[in-house]
Design a binder for these strands. Structure first.
Lengths: 225, 225
DNA sequence: CGTAGAGTTGATTGCGTTCAACTTCAGTGG
DNA sequence: CCACTGAAGTTGAACGCAATCAACTCTACG
């Protein structure tokens, strides 16, 4: 595993030039390639923290379970995303992460990371920046969820998924089920279905199952209004 | 100012024994006491990041402004809370912080902090933990906002405010207006007013303007269900 | 080909919003 | 000290968005 495999991983990766795993202090860290199949659990909520991950390929979702209530989806992961940062909080992962398709990740072990932290203070700044950005992003997402009505929220989400694709194309593929999307957006599946139809009727998007296209690229910016 | 004033600040502070500013690596950091009056702006969204704060006394709210939409309240701050962590993300504060009453804070300058980061790698771990905890807390809050109905959300909020008081008493004082609370909870002021009345009628709380009391302390745990 | 999960459609209900009128409270100046 | 003013908070009536329940259709997969 490790260095040689890692070299291959980043070398053949289309995102390599734009991935934190391949830049700055994180580049020098020891990493291990791990793969998961659809349905696998990458992280189990409550488990002991033993490292975090950078996603190279595939898709995953983070879910939170509180008390007796059903699971809630916190975010979706795409290539280049960091996974498992909640482990820093109290040495236990605070959410579960499930893989939705064949997925390849780089694992950065807890011990390796802490050692690197001692060796390079710049790494600390970088990680603080990364995790703070995550906080801000989450902030905006949830602020949106509460302020905006469902239709705007959906456009917002679609644009997020769209802009995560690489290279950017007008047509993109959703990797999650409507049920997952509805859960993430905090609406009912039926409502989601109706909204998709309405957006389609309005001519904002074209839908074909999980394949989505923005009719007019300018519409993507709608959510800024 | 500084060291002597600081000594006084923590020395006369009722929260000192339970405050991160007075424990671990943060204790050794250089800090400066700054005070603000009701209505003052502690941090302006978009401003250059130049340090973060620990609140000693008073109360404040963080607001986020996106596009043309009106401001949204992200969180309230109480003594012992850290303020301004969003500055780590890209060297600019990502939200405004406004003071709601006479407030005393300790400021930790950016330069001092970065210097300390080089000197003590443990500080890095501690800060990562702190900020990750914030992320997790925010996560739970917003998960709650979407899943729970308004009444449960309100109880949740009241309990949060209650448990922040020190020493814990059955009766506690809200430091924010109903408008702020409604904004924070993502509901209309009118709805909030009606809910408060309903909770009061149900015998769960007693209200007198901004003074609140839980009838039966066991009820505080309601939100766990 | 058959079954289970994913997704859609329709009818109904209800929670929370909105609009409007009003009361209470805190601060200000005569 | 009291009258005035504007913000904070309450109450009522009507509306509307999204949830829920129920019956389907479609799709993937063994």
């Amino acid at each position: 595993m490790d260095s040689k495999t890692l070299f291959d991983a980043c070398n053949y990766c289309p995102y390599a030039s734009d991935c934190c795993a391949n830049k700055g202090s994180l580049k020098a860290l020891t990493k291990r390639v791990v793969t998961f199949d659809k349905g696998d659990t990458l992280i189990q909520q409550g488990e002991q923290y033993d490292g975090f991950y950078v996603m190279c390929q595939g898709s995953a979702k983070a879910t939170l379970k509180e008390g007796a209530s059903s699971e809630r989806i916190l975010e979706f992961y795409h290539p280049r995303d960091l996974i498992g940062l909640s482990g820093f909080s109290n040495a236990h992962y605070q959410e579960s992460v499930k893989v939705m398709a064949y997925t390849k990740v780089l694992k950065i072990e807890k011990d390796d990371f802490e050692q690197a932290l001692h060796a390079s203070p710049v790494l600390a700044s970088e990680m603080l920046s990364v995790i703070s950005k995550r906080l801000v992003k989450r902030q905006h997402h949830y602020s949106a969820i509460n302020t905006m009505e469902a239709e705007t929220r959906l456009i917002h989400f679609l644009y997020e998924e769209y802009s995560g694709t690489y290279p950017e194309q007008h047509t993109f593929e959703l990797s999650m089920t409507r049920l997952d999307i509805a859960n993430y957006l905090g609406i009912a599946v039926e409502t989601l279905s109706r909204l998709m139809k309405r957006l389609s009727n309005k001519g904002i998007i074209e839908t074909n199952h999980r394949t989505i296209a923005f009719r007019d690229p300018a519409d993507k910016v709608l959510f800024d209004a």
